[in-house]
Design a protein around this nucleic acid. Structure first.
Length: 216
DNA sequence: CACCAGGCAAGTA
DNA sequence: TACTTGCATGGT
């Protein structure tokens, strides 16, 4: 079976078992972008609390958040952990948005993925996963998001090396899947659900995992 | 109690 | 270049 077909079969199997995932229900591109920074190495439950703090003060709005001091912002996002450095990173994001599009996300949508990605990566505090999350989940453009679960699941199936870097793993998917943002969106979401449930660090083999049928 | 979650950057050698 | 450390809360 070709890798293209295999990847789509993986998707269909996960989708039948777990979908639809209702992944990342943000109300605006900006809210999704903020969430992308807050969730760095952090449980989404904690991120949700921080987002509620912001939402309750009507601060999930770039122009309003821009007026906050870094310390005020840090206190509001405290539940998300790493709150001081994340406040700085959110400020960096706000400066980027101001410079790049005047807080107007529709301007960003007119740029190519490669251009957007390079510019996002130049912001201190935005790495590859955060950049791709913003491009895919906030802007609905087909930039595949990979994470630790993605690597672990595909390595367990001997489809990628365990030391594969972010860029190569992303290319593994993007060179084999159609450029469909809806597919990329749900694919990443389902991989995280599968990873959490059946592919943790300590559990080597999981016969209950729906993807188990593809093991050799 | 230990472990770690939807990472990233900076420091060290 | 290759490895290590700091960042921090809250759920299990």
């Amino acid at each position: 079976m070709s890798n293209e077909t295999l990847l789509l079969n993986f998707f269909d199997t996960m989708s039948a078992k777990l979908g639809p995932s209702n992944w990342w229900p943000g109300e605006s591109p900006f809210e999704v972008s903020v969430g992308a920074i807050l969730t760095q190495n952090t449980n989404w439950n904690n991120v949700h609390k921080a987002l509620l703090n912001l939402k309750n003060k009507d601060l999930l709005n770039p122009r309003k958040m821009f007026l906050l001091s870094e310390n005020e912002l840090a206190e509001l996002i405290r539940p998300a952990g790493y709150f001081r450095i994340k406040a700085k990173r959110l400020k960096n994001l706000l400066h980027f948005l101001n410079d790049e599009c005047g807080f107007n996300y529709s301007v960003l949508k007119n740029k190519t993925i490669d251009e957007l990605r390079a510019k996002l990566l130049s912001v201190n505090g935005i790495g590859p996963e955060t950049a791709d999350s913003i491009i895919l989940y906030a802007l609905n453009k087909p930039s595949f998001v990979v994470d630790a679960y993605t690597k672990r699941i595909f390595n367990r199936h001997s489809l990628v090396h365990e030391d594969i870097d972010y860029h190569d793993l992303r290319e593994f998917f993007m060179s084999r899947l159609p450029e469909d943002p809806g597919l990329y969106n749900e694919y990443h979401a389902l991989l995280v659900l599968v990873g959490k449930k059946w592919c943790r660090k300590k559990t080597p083999l999981c016969p209950e995992c729906p993807l188990h049928i593809y093991l050799d």
